[in-house]
Nucleic acid binder design. Sequence first.
DNA 1: AAAAAAC
Length: 568
Amino acid sequence: MEAFQLLSRGGVKFDKKRFKTDVQLFSKDTPAATSEKISEGELPGELDYFKYAPGGSGKRKAEGDGTTAKALKKRKVEEDNEDEDEDEKHSDAEEEDEDANGTEETPSRPRQRVVTKGSDIPAHADTFSAMAERYQISSLLLSNLTANGYNDPTGIQSYGIPILLESRDLAAISPTGTGKTLSYLLPIMSSLRAPSSSANSDAGAGVRAVVVAPTRELAHQIHNECLKLAQGRKWRVVLFSKATAGTLADKSARDKVDIIISTPLRLVASIKSGGLELSNVRHLVLDEADRMLDAEFFPQVEEILAACSHPQIQKAVFSATLPANAEKMAMQMLKDPIRVVVGLKDTPLPLISQSLTYVADDPSKLPSILGYLAKPYNPPVLIFTSSQPRATSLAQELVLNGVSNVDCLHAGMTKKEREDAVSRMRRGESWVMVSTEVMARGMDFKGIREVVNYDFPTSVQSYVHRIGRTGRAGREGKAVTYFTDDDAPFLKAIANVLLQSGSTVPEWILKLPKPSKLKRRQMGKVKRAEIVNPARKIGRSDAIKKRDMIAGSKRRAARKPSPTAGVE
DNA sequence: AAAAAAC
């Protein structure tokens, strides 16, 4: 409710009921219906991460074009805002309300808070056609955009694409599900002009663009997005894997590759084996940058950076979260960077209604989730656990307790199992997906309506990314987080995140004292065993293969979830 | 603090 109160401020008309029925507003599958519905349920500026002004729909009043003196003045103010301090978020949020009042009538520009920092920042572009005109984006690329439902740029696209097209380095921070992938893919493909294989290419030999992402699944998804943009020309976009690494060992084949999408370790392995040459790479993107720069990944990223030796390389980092230390590292690897922050850093979308559920201790979680899934829910639901064995065992327990269409996905599974699980998810065959942190970042399953943190996330960043699997591209979402007594030391930090993004938190949680470092360390040491239902008679030794059970559950198709909101 | 990231 408080979220709605927040939504209602700023003098913007907002019909909640209507909006609720329009949760598919931004669906790329229904572009025709999009503009019509969007103009009816309006969001105030600070919550509007999407630019949805339907050019010429005539329903919205157009009173400015984003280049007014007021707009320019506002931009100046934004640029002067250093946004260095983590603690300033609340005051910023307050200011945004005024911003929303002042600028909400300009439909042709993104109206959410965008803060830019850096030298000679290129002007943002409000439409894809404006970008195309300014930067000579090919008509093919442009038509591929519209063919795939990209009609109007989101905030990060409006600001990020011009920056990248002017060959500047960029650190982009924009909430989950606001179109970061396109923000870097479009400029890469436009800058490359033509495939290496084409006759008029003067690109020189070798791979010219590299995108790194932390999981195979995400790399795969980025590759798919890239292929959509590549339609109609002979681009060679390679999803780097064991197999493709082999084919690229041949130099002549390698020189025909335009873009590589990869996980870091795969790339490093190929560099080290001498099979991969990155000295002609002109564009390097780190997606989920804070993850790529953390202790485990950074050594690999360093090697990739070293291998990309071309003096004119453009580098960009993207994420929804970028803690101070990661940002510092990012800024060091970038040259004269521009920093763009859309919305509030490290904050979930207000479209996701979040709640915290007390479950006392670990054994109490299973009855809670079974109760949750026994009631009507919005499939598919994504459930996060803290480890692979717990993901597997929870999936087993759900199946054994009669929950239908349960799937499991973690990195301990085979490549094929992982791929199958993702495609079941994409086809809408999974109603309940139990997973680990591997699914936390970047994955864009448009249908996900609910996220359950069965195990408490171990950082604010993890929380923000996990729940960001729902509420994508303007849809509403719901996120439930279980917490036990053991989770208390981190509870307050997460509770503050809920507050920040317009959800409510029980009073007593906010009154919790700030936990000591020691306590937090202890909390981290809490070991959670596999999930077993003591009430159930069947033992773990029944030696039923998990996948058989899951397949069986599909055949049984027992309890059907009754969706409470409109399903596609 | 755990999971993830090759072969």
